[in-house]
Amino acid sequence: MNIDSITNGYVIDHIEAGKSMQIYEYLNLGDLDCSVAIIRNVKSKRTGKKDIIKIDEFIDINMDVLGYLAPDITVNVIKDGEIIEKKHMELPEELKNIIKCENPRCITSVEQDLDNIFKLTDRENRVYRCKYCESKAKNN
């Protein structure tokens, strides 16, 4: 299957197979006017199968979202049809308004104006805890 190359924009590569829709939702890619391609179950030497997302425009990508959801992915920045940068993700130290605290006893459950902030407390096990009530975030 062929998808046209993009001229200016991003190719989000090495997404774990099946996870592209989740990334699409979290990055709000449905709100964009430009071409966005989701390619699922592409053959991969490294992992067998992978997903790819192509975005045909320069937009503000929330790298914290990508780092949190899929730290193993690569974001290729494309300019004039050439890869000018390969960005590798890492788990962000802090997540701001990316996930919500699900603890019904947390102050964020009643004060809607508060930012939902999670801190990385255990990098090895990818544990994030709510800044306020310290509840563990569910693994994505």
Binding site: R105, C106, I107, E111, C130, K131, Y132, C133, E134
Partner: peptide, 9 residues
């Protein structure tokens, strides 16, 4: 406060 994390706020 009855809500957890309120003092942090």
């Amino acid at each position: 406060h009855p809500k957890e994390g309120a003092p942090e706020v």
